[in-house]
Computed example of a mutant assay.
Amino acid sequence: MRKYLIVVIILIITGCSDGFNYETNAIYSAEASNLTVNLKASGFILHGHDLDDDGIVNGYITSTKFTDTLFIKATEYKLFVQSNKTDTITSRANKGIKQYLDEIHYKNYNTQELSELEDVIKATAYGPKGTYMKGQTKLINVLRVDFNTY
């Protein structure tokens, strides 16, 4: 009886956590547009939930075709793009990647690929179950995805 009680107490204690923190590191490429995206997402997933409602994605987009680095911050619903040029910092909230590339006069992109890339970035904010893995994208290449939970 005592052994049974100890097992029940352990199950109750371990099963009653509030949830878990996560950190996702991902690298994607949009080959037709010559873009590489590095993302780091973090947040907290409540016990019994599959997705994070308040996750944040930070990252950057680079290309061998232009010298600027586009820094991004995203949630599941919004995308914020920031350029860090040597003379100024320009911010564009809720503008898509396409609009920002147009502003820096980069025209060598695939519109459908950029649309999927924005979806991939925003989905990463949902946590590990929302993050796109190999075989789940049509145009974007998944180069690497790592998860840490604690």
Rank of each mutant, 00 (worst) to 15 (best):
Y77I: 13
I97R: 04
A93K: 14
I89M: 14
D68C: 13
I97K: 01
L70R: 03
H105S: 13
I56R: 08
N94M: 12
V142F: 02
V57P: 05
E118Q: 09
I72R: 01
L79M: 13
I104S: 01
L46T: 08
I140K: 01
D50W: 11
G96P: 02
T67L: 15
I56N: 04
R92F: 15
Y126V: 02
A93G: 09
T131M: 09
T111W: 02
N141V: 10
I121D: 00
Q136C: 08
I97Y: 00
G127M: 02
N141T: 14
V120E: 00
I61Y: 02
T86E: 14
N84W: 11
I104D: 01
N108H: 10
G59V: 03
S83I: 15
D53C: 05
Q136W: 07
Y106Q: 06
F71G: 08
D87N: 15
L101H: 03
K134P: 14
A74Q: 08
N94K: 11
G96V: 03
I121K: 01
R144W: 05
Y77T: 13
T90F: 12
D102S: 07
D68N: 14
K98T: 08
N108M: 09
K138A: 08
D52M: 04
E113D: 06
L114W: 02
T137W: 06
K85D: 15
L51H: 07
K98C: 06
T90S: 14
Y106P: 00
K134A: 09
N94C: 08
L51Y: 12
K85Y: 15
R144K: 14
A74I: 11
E118P: 02
I61S: 03
T88D: 15
N108V: 05
T124D: 03
S83R: 15
A123P: 01
K65Y: 12
N141F: 11
D119I: 03
I56F: 10
E116R: 05
K129V: 04
G127Y: 01
I56H: 07
Q99E: 14
V81T: 12
L117D: 04
T90M: 12
K65C: 11
T131G: 06
K73R: 15
V142T: 12
P128H: 05
I72E: 06
